[in-house]
Amino acid sequence: MVFTLYKRLMRVGFLLFLVTAALSFAKAPHPFFVSVTEMEHNAKDKTVEISCKVFTDDFEKALTKMANQKVDLYHPKDKTQLDKWVTQYIQTHLNIMLDGKKMPLQFVGFEIEDQSTISYFQIDGVSVAPKKVVVDNTIFYDQIDKQIQIVHCLVGGNRKSSRVVYPEERLEFSF
């Protein structure tokens, strides 16, 4: 009986330790630096839909540096201006070529999800599924030398994924 009570107390103590540790990490800066870009060819709409997910605090630092003023993604003072800065930053640091042709990214919008910011773009007029996709991704390379870029690319139901680590920037997918 004493042994059973001891085991229960140890379990409770361990659970309290885990909860405390988790909460302390939630307040601390994240220990890794990664962006995740998802691309999907939408044959019906003749577009390539793109989402780019990054840590919000890193994005605010990058936008603040670019805009030469404090940028707050959670509580923007001027949403129109913020949309322009998000567009400018991503279009500068994410370049996509489809079958050898550099494609313009059209800004759709962005949203905050927990500690991440997801920005949405699309490429119009892609009536034929691309055979080769080249992505040059330098998001946060101007401020973080441990940055990892993960890219998922879906064309014709075929999903391919790859990653690069600073200073590498180019990913190539063949379909």
Results as ranks from 00 to 15, higher is better:
Met1Lys: 05
Phe3Gln: 11
Leu5Phe: 13
Tyr6Lys: 11
Phe17Ile: 11
Phe17Asn: 07
Phe17Pro: 03
Ala21Met: 14
Ala21Gly: 14
Ala26Glu: 15
Phe33Cys: 07
Val36Lys: 02
Glu38Ala: 09
Glu38Cys: 03
Glu38Phe: 08
Asp45Pro: 05
Thr47Leu: 12
Glu49Ile: 04
Glu49Val: 10
Ser51Trp: 01
Ser51Thr: 10
Cys52Leu: 07
Val54Lys: 02
Asp58Phe: 05
Leu63Tyr: 01
Thr64Ile: 04
Lys65Thr: 05
Lys65Arg: 06
Lys65Phe: 01
Ala67Gln: 04
Asn68Pro: 00
Gln69Tyr: 07
Gln69Cys: 04
Val71Arg: 00
Leu73Gly: 04
Leu73Trp: 06
Leu73His: 03
His75Phe: 14
His75Arg: 09
Pro76Leu: 08
Lys77Arg: 11
Lys79His: 14
Trp85Phe: 10
Val86Gly: 01
Thr87Asn: 06
Tyr89Asp: 02
Thr92Ser: 10
Leu94Gly: 01
Ile96Thr: 02
Met97Glu: 08
Asp99His: 02
Asp99Lys: 01
Lys102Val: 08
Leu105Val: 03
Gly109Arg: 06
Gly109Gln: 04
Ile112Trp: 09
Glu113Phe: 08
Asp114Cys: 03
Gln115Ala: 14
Gln122Phe: 07
Gln122Met: 09
Ile123Thr: 04
Asp124Gly: 05
Asp124Ser: 11
Asp124Tyr: 06
Asp124His: 10
Asp124Pro: 07
Lys131Phe: 09
Lys132Glu: 02
Asp136Ile: 05
Ile139Lys: 00
Gln143His: 10
Gln147Val: 08
Ile148Phe: 03
Ile150Glu: 10
Ile150Ser: 08
His152Phe: 12
Leu154Ser: 13
Val155Ile: 15
Gly157His: 08
Ser162Ala: 13
Arg163Trp: 09
Tyr166Asn: 06
Glu168Gln: 15
Glu169Gly: 08
Leu171Asp: 00
Glu172Ser: 10
Glu172Ile: 12
Glu172Pro: 02
Phe175Gly: 03
Phe175Leu: 09
